[in-house]
């Protein structure tokens, strides 16, 4: 073990959805400053893992341990995990009609800072974050994700991340449903956020996003398990050869 405490560490995590086991014992350690990626086909369990780590009530962790900066998070509600420093960027960010992006963002930041916190800097921070992510100022008064395009939704997700500045960011398919220009903006946002003090775990089907955000480690997930872990070159190999060779390799073993 290195002397620095891992940002996120989970061991032998098993996840059930509606009584069916979809994640079958996975472990990972993410140290400060590290970017990890989980790659896998649809249905491999990677989104279930990130939802379960965040505390989604439909994803039950039946076995295993998870620690954020050394603190066990599995007994926490999702909002407590968020305030403890965990962030999940959604694959399909939900629309909440009638709630403006600004009001939501203010409430979110206030919850992180505490009920009595001074929020007088909010407007300035919010405007700066919007500018960084090329989000038009008019989005402040629009309802969250209501009628947003795929790219707009993902930019707003990254905006939330940059404002809350979590210790650990789980990015679930942040590149899906997004055109190439938006990918650039979104990945720039991720790179701006990323530092020696935090951790990033990207969950993705394609290697596209990994061209812009360089992972230190790539974990390949199949059927609820990590079947292979390697460096960034593994992502390139998957891009070239697809996932089929892994199947052969796996069945071969």
């Amino acid at each position: 073990m290195s002397d620095k405490k891992p940002i996120l560490e989970f061991k032998d995590i098993h996840v059930e959805v509606e009584g069916k086991e979809v994640v079958k014992g996975v472990s990972m350690t993410i140290n400060p400053g590290e970017i990890h990626a989980i790659m896998g086909k649809n249905g491999s369990g990677k989104s279930s893992l990130s939802n379960a780590l965040m505390g989604h009530p439909s994803y039950t962790i039946t076995k295993g341990e998870a620690y954020l900066k050394g603190e066990s998070i599995l007994d926490m509600e999702a909002d407590e995990r968020s305030r403890a420093g965990l962030f999940l960027a959604f694959q399909y960010p939900l629309a909440i009609p009638g709630v403006t992006v600004a009001n939501f963002m203010r409430a979110a930041l206030k919850s992180h800072r505490g009920a009595d916190a001074d929020m007088s800097d909010f407007r300035k921070l919010f405007k700066a974050a919007m500018t960084d992510l090329s989000v038009d100022q008019s989005f402040a008064t629009r309802y969250i994700n209501d009628g947003f395009s795929g790219g707009e939704k993902k930019r707003i997700e990254v905006l939330q991340m940059s404002m809350l500045n979590p210790a650990m960011a789980l990015l679930d398919e942040t590149d899906s449903g997004v055109d190439i220009d938006a990918i650039k903006i979104v990945s720039e946002g991720i790179n701006r956020y990323q530092s020696e003090n935090n951790g990033v775990l990207m969950v993705t089907h394609y290697q596209r996003l990994l061209n812009y955000v360089k992972p230190d480690k790539v974990h390949v997930m199949m059927d609820g398990k990590f079947v292979l872990t390697g460096g960034p070159e593994l992502a390139l190999k998957l891009e070239e050869s697809g996932y089929e060779w892994l199947n052969e390799e796996k069945t071969g073993v």
């Binding site: 965040m54 968020s82 959604f90 409430a107």
Partner: peptide, 11 residues
């Protein structure tokens, strides 16, 4: 929707 907001720290 509730989960989405909770994920951002809102109780």
């Amino acid at each position: 929707m509730v989960f989405f907001l909770k994920c951002r720290g809102i109780n």
